[in-house]
Design a binder for these strands. Structure first.
Lengths: 217, 217
DNA sequence: AGGATTGTTGGCCATGTGGCCAATAAAGAA
DNA sequence: TTCTTTATTGGCCACATGGCCAACAATCCT
């Protein structure tokens, strides 16, 4: 019921972009679509409608939908969360940085990212290219987290530990939080945000509420 | 390429079952299908093909596919994992019971359940009835886990804690493990199975490897 | 300016799905 | 036995998707 719009509206879009520009435009539209309506909404027709072009154009740049889904996911998740890590690095110490990361990451606000991650995990089981994108994104995240942990060790703020496996354990718990908060289970029963904070405090030998205070507002 | 079988093969199935029997048969077929090929394979045609009946029959008992998906999920996950908790209760002490639960739950073997959970979480975001089924299943699990924790407190095997929120935290970490093991990320880098064991040992004040020993074989 | 390159369009097909319905036949009731 | 009920069938429609392609036209090059 909302499929017709190209004939009535010329879309006022500059036609014949360079391949690089058009490709980037498609990826951004797909990523925005994934954040707003889920990764399942990333289809030839869906992206084309949002962009105001013909579905065949999208197919021209991504001859397989899976590739478009993978790119959309990657662009959607890597954009602002690498920024988050950069912000964390500029903060005073590792504890403050970690607190910042947790606050941004498991915010209870409208849940665009959580849904995208869940969608990606689901699709990864059946679509190899999405799986590869998810795998890469998670390894990248792990690397960034390891850097934070190593910084904390250098600054003597964290109890001694092996950053590599611990980072995986924290990410595992974090992804569990994504699942639970995305579902809205146990809402009102226990604050999901504090769950990960508790785990991290314990693992790093921090004093109670050293990280959970990030959610006090 | 495998859709034709009703005309050539009478399916040798007793026809005209009682509504209760047929309904149960459908649910079991749908659950088996969900475990083998994912919850997305639970369609009118899919279940009917597995059962050797007409798709219309399945629709006659479940006039909305969502209801069938929800029932399939519930039957698939509640069947054997309530049994696991019963087995745990019959074991010597709470620590042994918890160890048993972890071993069965996060086994690295063929991953039928993990996929089903992931599928359900994904579908729950868009299908209310599936969401209700998932919510109920998770609350049930939480209740069973709380019972185990309370038992451990009575037996003085666990450090003092509030079982209710702790059970949610453990389940959160556990679901994170499901995500990671389902993806096969970090395979060979860190043993995902031990992640949840570490968290639990820490939270309950158990000595190192008290639970992780469940994975030594 | 004219021609070649290629970004772009609109439409087409096959497939799989949910949902619906009249016709059929099997089981139980009279 | 015959009649009534209803479990069951097979086919139908509308819709959305992935993928493909010939024709069109804007831009760049000569």
């Amino acid at each position: 019921m909302k499929s017709r719009m190209s004939a009535t509206q010329p879309t006022a879009r500059s036609r014949r972009l360079s391949p690089a520009e058009r490709r980037q435009e498609i990826i951004e539209a797909a990523a925005a679509l994934a954040l707003e309506e889920g990764l399942a909404a990333v289809t030839y027709r869906g992206v084309a409608a949002r962009l105001g072009c013909a579905p065949g154009l999208v197919h021209h740049y991504f001859d397989v939908v899976e590739a478009l889904e993978a790119e959309a996911f990657t662009h959607a998740v890597t954009t602002d969360f690498e920024r988050t890590f950069e912000e964390a690095e500029e903060l005073g110490d590792a504890v403050a940085g970690l607190r910042h990361i947790l606050r941004v990451w498991v915010s209870e606000s409208p849940e665009p990212h959580k849904t995208v991650w869940l969608d990606a995990w689901y699709l990864a089981a059946r679509k190899p290219r999405v799986h590869a994108a998810v795998d890469h994104a998670m390894r990248t995240t792990h690397g960034l987290l390891v850097a934070v942990l190593e910084r904390g060790l250098r600054e003597d703020r964290f109890a001694p530990h092996d950053p590599d496996p611990l980072a995986w354990q924290l990410l595992t718990a974090l992804d569990g939080v994504i699942v639970h908060s995305s579902l809205g289970v146990n809402r009102g029963i226990v604050d999901v945000r504090r769950t990960i904070a508790r785990f991290t405090e314990t693992a790093l030998g921090l004093e109670r509420d050293a990280l959970a205070s990030a959610f006090d507002n």
